[in-house]
Design a protein around this nucleic acid. Structure first.
Length: 829
DNA sequence: AGCACGCCGACT
DNA sequence: GTCGGCGTGCTC
């Protein structure tokens, strides 16, 4: 098939390459290298190969050998796409580890790791980059042909182009066009990240002197009194705050938007659009030259000392304690040593202006890697990391796949965040855990930061596997909120409780309203009442699909299933016995909102839960209203816990903590703790000390105590374990198995089978589960976890992993688990 | 992931 | 008699 000019190649060895194909297949494949490419073939370069009858794929070379395969004739690889490797040896090693650890195929790891523009395949879609201007005359004939064809038909596949040029090797041409920014490769028509903008106003310096202002007033007062009001309001506001937004000024001055616009037109005000963010992820106000507080300084020193002995340090710092400043100091030191730093953030936190803040510090040496950036940008970051041009990368979980050359430090901010875990598709990796392995490969260090660390990390810190540094004070002297626990039982007895609101909470709410401050009330259940109960026969309507009790929603007047979305009309008589004595039991956000409206008719109350934020902009609208103080009290589910930052919120009320506390397993304890602590952290952040009221029937509950004391040393105990007789923390080695299948029955059998097998191997008492997080039922498959616990000096983790692997292989061959995927999610050491 | 091969049901 | 459903197996 190939012709060679005989003498041209001095090196006539026949070479073969092992490649990874971007497919979910078990094996790696071998291709033959054409002689003329012998000199340039290299591990880590991309090659184009034919796989199957007609499909072309981009594959990564993982090994070069001289041994021809024995059982078949290898096909020739068609092209080499790169002048130098795009994937480093270390990355290949990392991929291999990740694939084994999370039990998936190499090809799946490759798919997750490489930006799609680096993975041209015959079905890859090509389109023109409309945002880029260039000189068409400068294009080569073939490039011109492609561009013209794309004018007529906006999207072509690589095989289309192959036909168009009637030649097979089109990928190098496309690669060239991509690098010239002329085309886009397989860009998903996804909503790209748009930062939220707001208009800020500043007074034109020309009017800033006393005299100038007087003159301006003179003119405005006569001709446009509204505009004069606006300028006056501006001056008033400017006394207390640095940045003044247009909407604030409109509200303060009472002048319409039109007046303000005409002032902008007259250049009295200078308008400037700025990105703003309402999501709060430890992005304290950073002054250009900040000084660390004594406590921060001590933490920094402690972290550095611990890094001498430990690879991972957990920085446990309360909300607003200034973790970011510590990160910056550490990053500076790494850069000074010429090493790279990866700063991982959960997806949502990246949309904030923390990026801008860090750019101020690290200028052009900082790169941002985010799944919502387009592929051109992603490939650019990839190349710059590979060239060691970017010293710092700020990124979401997928940035652990970047080709770092010399990684000195990985910071995992908000370490507990579940968005570090990829659930679907494979590889179902946790970027925090992968980061620990990655850093280890580079002999780098990892700093995990969180105000509410995950149990795994906290446990590892307490058992001295990780180092631990703590920040217990807020930065800038603002005190942590006061937490008051109120017994619902007691207030009920004293009859001081009104509906669901204790006298303590009511007093605090009223105080806040008087001070024109805002309140967030947290009730972790949406709808009006979670159970409808017949008082005569105890019948409760259940979902026909999920067998859980239906929640009454007053808004729709129907009963809803919160798992599958099933709805039915609310019966007025009991379907079982015909009685009319139907009773609503329990309460959700709707009821809280309802009853609060009755008690505080003048307060502006809004509800924020899945039901009120389902439509496109409703979440944004609620957040805007809250920010602009159009809302006094926000009633919400756990949505309010995630990083909402509003200066005006001083009181947080947890309506009923018990619904969070009654679950038996330790994961639920962790979640409850985190939710309570996160919600509490929203109170009074800027300047004013906040107040948190926790209402509960069980004021002595351990989790509540931990929240108050900001310590979770004992959370590993759970009620259930106590009942079963565990009186000291068992030495947990937790294996979460994500068992996924579209057919839940088969799945349940698998998980049960697996845990039974594990019981046989490791003993009855060590295996907990399978546990099904119910949320995932919505998508019609389950992700289950099986937890193994070992007391000290128990079985080694490797033994456990090997056993699991054996069991899985077994039941894959017995066809019990056809189509299922079982992945362990264990601590990477 | 594709794609072919193959074995059963409902159709012009 | 054939069209087409998706189950199974293979791709260097």
């Amino acid at each position: 098939m190939l012709e060679f000019a005989d003498a041209q190649y001095t090196d006539r060895k026949t070479l073969f390459v092992e490649v990874i194909l971007p497919l979910a297949i078990a094996k790696n494949y071998t291709y033959r290298v054409p002689f003329e490419l012998n000199n340039i073939i290299e591990v880590g370069k991309r090659v184009v190969v034919q796989f199957g009858k007609s499909k072309l794929y981009t594959a990564i070379v993982t090994a070069i050998t001289e041994h021809p395969p024995e059982k078949y004739e290898a096909k020739y690889l068609l092209e080499i796409l790169d002048d130098r490797p795009v994937v480093t040896d270390r990355q290949l090693q990392f991929w291999k580890w990740l694939g084994e650890y999370y039990m998936c195929y190499d090809g799946e790891v490759m798919n997750a790791a490489l930006p799609s523009a680096l993975k041209l395949a015959s079905e890859t879609k090509i389109a023109l980059n409309k945002e880029f201007e260039y000189d068409r005359a400068a294009l080569h004939d073939k490039e011109y042909l492609i561009v013209e064809a794309l004018d007529i038909q906006p999207e072509l596949t690589i095989s289309d182009i192959s036909k168009l040029l009637s030649q097979k090797t089109v990928m190098p041409i496309l690669k060239e066009l991509f690098e010239k920014n002329i085309i886009n490769i397989s860009e998903e028509v996804s909503d790209r990240y748009k930062p939220r903008k707001r208009t800020f106003l500043t007074l034109n310096p020309a009017y800033q002197g006393q005299d100038n202002l007087k003159e301006l007033f003179g003119i405005l007062e006569k001709r446009a009194p509204k505009q004069a009001d606006a300028v006056l309001a501006y001056i008033k506001l400017a006394r207390h705050q640095k940045a003044i937004s247009k909407s604030e000024l409109i509200e303060e001055s009472g002048a319409g938007a039109a007046s303000i616009n005409s002032l902008i037109e007259k250049e009295v005000f200078i308008a400037e659009e700025k990105n703003v963010s309402r999501l709060y992820f430890e992005e304290e106000d950073l002054d250009a030259n900040f000084e660390l507080s004594d406590q921060q300084q001590a933490a920094l020193v402690s972290i550095k000392q611990q890094f001498e002995q430990k690879d991972v340090v957990l920085l446990h710092g309360v909300t607003s304690s200034g973790k970011t400043q510590i990160y910056i100091r550490l990053i500076e030191q790494m850069i000074a040593q010429g090493k790279q730093v990866l700063y991982l953030l959960p997806e949502i936190a990246l949309t904030t202006h923390i990026i801008e803040r860090l750019r101020q510090y690290f200028g052009s040496s900082i790169g941002v890697y985010h799944s919502r950036f387009n592929d051109n940008e992603r490939v650019e970051v990839w190349q710059k990391v590979l060239n060691n041009e970017y010293k710092v990368v700020l990124g979401a979980r997928s940035s652990v796949f970047l080709p770092f050359v010399d990684l000195g430090l990985i910071i995992v901010d908000e370490e507990h965040e579940t968005s570090y875990k990829q659930f679907d598709p494979a590889p179902r990796y946790n970027a925090r855990d992968a980061a620990i392995f990655l850093a280890n490969m580079h002999q780098g260090k990892v700093l995990l930061g969180s105000a509410t660390p995950s149990f795994e990390s906290y446990f590892n810190a307490r058992t001295h596997k990780y180092g631990l540094a703590e920040l217990t004070e807020r930065y800038g002297g603002v005190h942590l909120p006061v937490i008051e626990v109120v017994s619902i039982a007691e207030e009920t007895k004293k009859k001081t409780i009104q509906s669901h609101f204790t006298s303590v909470l009511m007093t605090d709410i009223q105080q806040a309203l008087t001070n024109k401050e805002q309140v967030i009330l947290f009730q972790n259940r949406r709808g009006y009442a979670p159970v409808l109960l017949c008082r005569i026969c105890a019948y409760t309507p259940k979902c026909i699909n999920c067998d859980v009790s239906l929640t009454y929603h007053k808004h729709s007047g129907k009963l809803h299933c919160h798992y599958c979305g099933y709805k039915e009309d609310t019966p007025s008589i009991c379907p079982a016995c015909g009685s009319t004595h139907l009773e609503y039991r329990g309460f959700g956000t709707e009821k809280v909102e309802d009853e609060l409206t009755l008690l505080l008719p003048d307060a502006r109350i809004t509800r924020m839960d899945l039901d009120t934020t389902r439509s496109r902009n409703s979440l944004q609208n609620i957040l805007n209203d809250l920010e602009e103080k159009k809302i006094d009290i926000l009633v919400g589910t756990q949505m309010v816990a995630k990083g909402l930052d509003f200066a005006g919120v001083t009181v947080i009320g947890i309506i009923n903590a018990d619904s969070l506390l009654k679950y038996p397993d330790y994961r639920a304890n962790e979640r409850s703790y985190q939710l309570l602590a996160q919600v509490s952290g929203r109170a009074g952040r800027r300047g004013k000390q906040g107040k948190v009221v926790i209402q509960t029937y069980d004021p002595a509950h351990r989790v509540i105590k931990q929240v108050i004391e900001n310590d979770y040393s004992d959370l590993y105990f759970t009620e259930m374990e106590e009942r079963r007789g565990f009186h000291y923390p068992p030495f947990y080695r937790i294996i979460n198995l994500d068992v996924k299948h579209k057919n839940s029955d088969i799945l349940y059998n698998q998980a049960t089978y697996l845990s039974n097998e594990l019981r046989k191997h490791f003993g009855e008492e060590r295996v907990v589960g399978p546990q099904v997080p119910l949320v995932s039922r919505i998508r019609n498959y389950y992700i289950q976890s099986i937890m193994l616990k070992f007391e000290k000096d128990g079985v080694s983790i490797n033994k456990v992993k090997t056993t699991i692997r054996d069991i899985i292989t077994q039941f894959q061959t017995t066809k019990l688990s056809k189509g299922s995927i079982v992945q362990p999610d264990v601590d990477p050491y």
